[in-house]
């Protein structure tokens, strides 16, 4: 069944057309890689799913409804920036997520944070950028959501932590849930993808099963991406 449907959706910023008549379906139970060069429209698509931007024309449906309170209950979103209130402690942030998301698993969050050697008493403003990103990821992955949307989840962390983060993502998402991962670091994530979506200049240029791509093109997704988007 379709979880997200883009129907002929376009988005303009002033006179610039950032998304051009996108038609796309996100199904349940799959990990999607939303891949494209800078400015291709990845983050704009993600923001539209999360109701942070409105389409100029066309339609977006989540579980058959327009984005709103109900869609926010089932989507766990990690933006590409730090969205935390820096005056909070980790314990306050945990309480915040517990207060607003019924599907938030406090135990799991504490467990994951301890593994990363982050204490509940730690103040967010005293953390490095990478640690803040890890805290955010832990919060997002500690929800039992139907759809996880991760915009550049490994962009700000050191290569040594990337495997741990990918493992965290893989081992903590619900069976039957879907994940959309947007990133430039394709080689790091390609092994976990079920479906690959290439987007360029606001258009979907490829939407195919990851294994099929590897078999048909006899190459890795990373190499295919480099060929497709060669400057």
């Amino acid at each position: 069944m379709e979880l997200v449907e883009f129907k002929n959706l376009s988005k303009n910023f002033g006179s610039k057309e950032v998304l051009k008549k996108i038609n796309l379906t996100i199904e349940k139970g799959k990990i999607y890689g939303l891949l494209g060069p800078n400015g291709s429209g990845k983050t704009t698509m993600i923001k539209i799913i999360n109701d942070l931007l409105q389409p100029t024309s066309g339609e977006i449906l989540i579980n058959g409804c327009e984005p709103g309170i109900e869609s926010k209950k089932i989507i766990s979103f990690l933006p590409e920036r730090t969205y935390l209130n820096m005056n909070m402690k980790v314990s306050e942030l945990i309480q915040f997520f517990k207060d607003f998301y019924e599907d938030f698993d406090e135990k799991k969050a504490v467990q994951l944070l301890h593994k990363l050697k982050i204490k509940e008493t730690d103040q967010l403003k005293n953390m490095s950028k990478g640690t803040k990103e890890k805290v955010q990821l832990v919060m997002v992955m500690s929800r039992k959501a139907d759809l996880y949307i991760l915009d550049e989840p490994i962009g700000g962390v050191d290569p040594a932590s990337r495997d741990y983060i990918l493992e965290t993502i893989l081992t903590n998402f619900n069976d039957g849930s879907s994940i959309i991962i947007s990133t430039h670091l394709i080689s790091d994530i390609e092994k976990i993808l079920d479906q690959v979506i290439f987007i360029n200049q606001g258009k979907i240029v490829l939407n195919e099963d990851a294994d099929t791509i590897r078999k048909k093109k006899k190459t890795t997704i990373d190499k295919l991406f480099r060929e497709e988007f060669k400057c």
Partner: peptide, 11 residues
């Protein structure tokens, strides 16, 4: 930036 969290709360 905090708006990314506040506007994605189910409220």
């Amino acid at each position: 930036d905090e708006g990314y969290l506040m506007h994605t709360l189910p409220v």
